[in-house]
């Protein structure tokens, strides 16, 4: 049987070729059909996250709190990076918890295909479920920490205002950004798994440049003051890169001293839409090859 004969036979009986990429439209539809599977996977995954401890899910709160305490000691008290910030505890915890969510979601998503080869080779489903479900799982696992942020804001003297209602919206935008980054890197890491080694390094760099424990806006202004107007693009890039602008957006909802700016929200949502779109397309283009040994 030649290749052409086989093809003709298959077409004659309406068989569908496997291992070929579906159209983007049908892929998205397929993904939508699997939404409850996505939720089930995410819930299972988030429960599994802190299961091997006596304190269990309590660690979802304890862990970031302890880390925040360490950061406060180092950056707040020892290095004094909190200059120009009144409520540094609130500023730091919001930045840190949001960043921890983004970095964890991104890191898990990047390895979600390579790490679940057994599942990919056993069950058929749109593979985008894997990176999406870990990002969602991480969001569910981070919920207690995000609630703690509201408590901390109250304890540190922030007064509840209407902008607090936007806090969940901001978290959702952050999640979409993370999902986009995750989808993209999942495909890249599947293609060349060595790239997985770069993910923690990039994460580390983002941690120190995205204003987790200092104000990027203040720092950017300092740069311009010191070296002149030609550094304005650098300062803007610092402020408006996806991670930094995400942290700022979340802070704007809870911290009274960080005023709401439309630019922040425009950039953060813009990044979210852009990264998710690019992420889905990039991931979908590789769909035919996932599970290949």
């Amino acid at each position: 049987m030649s290749r052409e004969e086989a093809r003709r036979l298959a077409k004659q009986y309406g068989l569908q070729q496997v291992g070929v990429r579906p159209t983007l439209g049908s892929y998205l539809k397929d993904l939508w059909r699997h939404k409850s599977f996505l939720l089930t996977m995410s819930a299972a995954d988030s429960v599994a996250r802190h299961q091997n401890n006596y304190l269990g899910q309590l660690w979802a709160v304890l862990n970031p709190l302890l880390l925040a305490f360490a950061y406060f000691l180092i950056f707040g008290l020892l290095l004094g990076t909190g200059r120009g910030v009144e409520n540094f505890v609130g500023f730091l915890t919001i930045g840190l918890f949001t960043f921890l969510y983004m970095s964890a979601g991104w890191n898990y998503a990047a390895k979600s295909l390579v790490g679940n080869v057994a599942m990919v080779r056993a069950l058929r489903f749109p593979r985008a479920i894997l990176p999406l479900s870990v990002v969602l799982a991480e969001l569910l696992a981070s919920m207690p920490a995000f609630l703690v942020l509201v408590v901390i804001a109250l304890l540190t003297g922030e007064r509840p205002q209407l902008s607090w209602l936007l806090f969940p919206v901001a978290i959702l935008i952050v999640a979409v950004t993370t999902a986009g980054m995750g989808l993209m890197s999942a495909r890249l890491v599947h293609g060349a798994r060595d790239l997985a080694n770069l993910v923690p390094i990039i994460t580390r760099m983002l941690r120190y440049t995205s204003g987790v424990f200092f104000s990027v806006a203040t720092y950017g202004d300092l740069l311009v003051e010191k070296y002149g107007q030609q550094l304005r693009p650098v300062a803007d890039a610092l402020v408006y890169q996806p991670v930094a602008v995400s942290l700022t957006m979340v802070r704007e909802t809870l911290l009274g001293e960080v005023p709401m700016r439309w630019e922040t929200w425009a950039f953060a949502s813009g990044w979210a839409v852009l990264l998710l779109t690019v992420g889905i397309v990039v991931f979908w283009r590789g769909e035919a090859g996932y599970g290949r040994a």
């Binding site: 009986y13 309406g14 569908q16 496997v18």
Partner: peptide, 8 residues
């Protein structure tokens, strides 16, 4: 190539 008629 692999062609299938239905769900496997």
């Amino acid at each position: 190539e692999v062609w299938l008629g239905g769900r496997a």
